[in-house]
Simulated scan of single mutants.
Amino acid sequence: MGTHLITGAGSGIGAAVARRLAERGEQLWLLARDAKRAIELRDRFPGSRTLVGDLAEPERLSWAFGHQELPVELDSLLQIAGVAELGPVGELPPKVWQQTLAVNLVAPAELTRLLLPSLRQARGQVVFVNSGAGLRANADWGAYAASKFGLRALADALRAEEHAAGVRVTTVYPGRTATPMQQKVHAQEGRDYRPDAWIDPDSVATTVLTALDLPRDAEITDLTVRPGH
């Protein structure tokens, strides 16, 4: 049985990954933004443990974790949470850029820093669930894509730095997936939302588990997942 810390377990891809790991009897640590959310996550995933920390305030994560117990050994850190706010570069204010970069890039970097000792102890794995926007930036996606391009760079640098310690690093680039975030994106785009037109979150969860379950003689570095229809 492995020990896994998941961000974004409350919905979408993160919830699908948490459910699949729980069904296998794995030990889950779930990041919650506040104490109320932590209770909700423990009720949803019986037997799980929670850490409280707000990804929107990455500079406070070290202080928050200093008052809580952390896993001694961590087989995987699954960074799945994210935010998206669309708009043309000519109209996005600094606040949107700062919030997007904080949650999608700075917080994952800080989580990695704080949990690296536990990952090294277990020769574990960091999985970043990125986005197709981490490979290509389209109009109105500047802030989100910039954060995801940065996340790709974070993963590549981390992989080079931690290879000798036995820590594997994988980035998954899903296309549009039927999640609450996607529903919000469609609303911002002024489009009707049809979840059956996009990837099922469980399919992305299967991709994440494939990377985790790969034998130790190999490492999946990058996986791109696209809608099949």
Rank of each mutant, 00 (worst) to 15 (best):
G2R: 13
A9C: 12
S11E: 14
A15I: 05
R19Q: 15
R19D: 12
R20Q: 15
L21I: 09
R24M: 09
E26Q: 13
E26I: 10
E26P: 08
L31I: 06
L31M: 11
A32G: 12
A38M: 10
R42C: 14
G47K: 08
S48P: 09
S48W: 12
V52G: 08
D54F: 14
L55K: 05
P58H: 03
L61R: 07
L61S: 06
S62G: 02
W63P: 02
W63I: 07
E69H: 10
V72Y: 13
E73T: 15
D75Q: 11
D75V: 03
I80E: 09
A81N: 10
A84M: 05
A84E: 06
V89T: 11
P93W: 11
P93I: 09
W97M: 06
Q98E: 14
Q99W: 01
T100F: 00
L101Y: 01
L105H: 02
V106K: 02
A109M: 01
E110S: 00
P117S: 04
S118W: 12
L119Q: 03
A122S: 12
G124D: 11
V126M: 02
V126S: 02
V127I: 14
N130P: 12
G132P: 09
A133W: 10
A133P: 05
L135K: 14
A139V: 12
W141I: 13
G142K: 06
A143S: 14
A143M: 09
A145Y: 12
A145K: 12
A145G: 11
G150N: 08
L151Y: 01
A153W: 00
L154D: 00
L154C: 01
A155R: 00
D156G: 00
A157R: 02
L158P: 02
L158C: 01
A160V: 01
E161Y: 06
V167W: 03
T170G: 07
T171R: 01
Y173C: 05
A178G: 06
M181V: 05
M181E: 07
Q182I: 05
Q182P: 07
V185N: 04
H186V: 04
R191L: 11
D192L: 12
Y193F: 15
Y193L: 07
P195K: 09
A197S: 04
W198K: 01
I199P: 03
I199K: 06
D200G: 00
D200Y: 03
V204L: 04
L209C: 10
L209I: 10
L209P: 10
L212D: 08
L214G: 03
L214D: 01
P215N: 07
R216D: 08
A218F: 14
A218C: 13
E219T: 10
T221I: 09
T221F: 06
L223K: 03
L223S: 12
L223N: 06
L223D: 09
L223E: 10
R226C: 02
H229S: 10
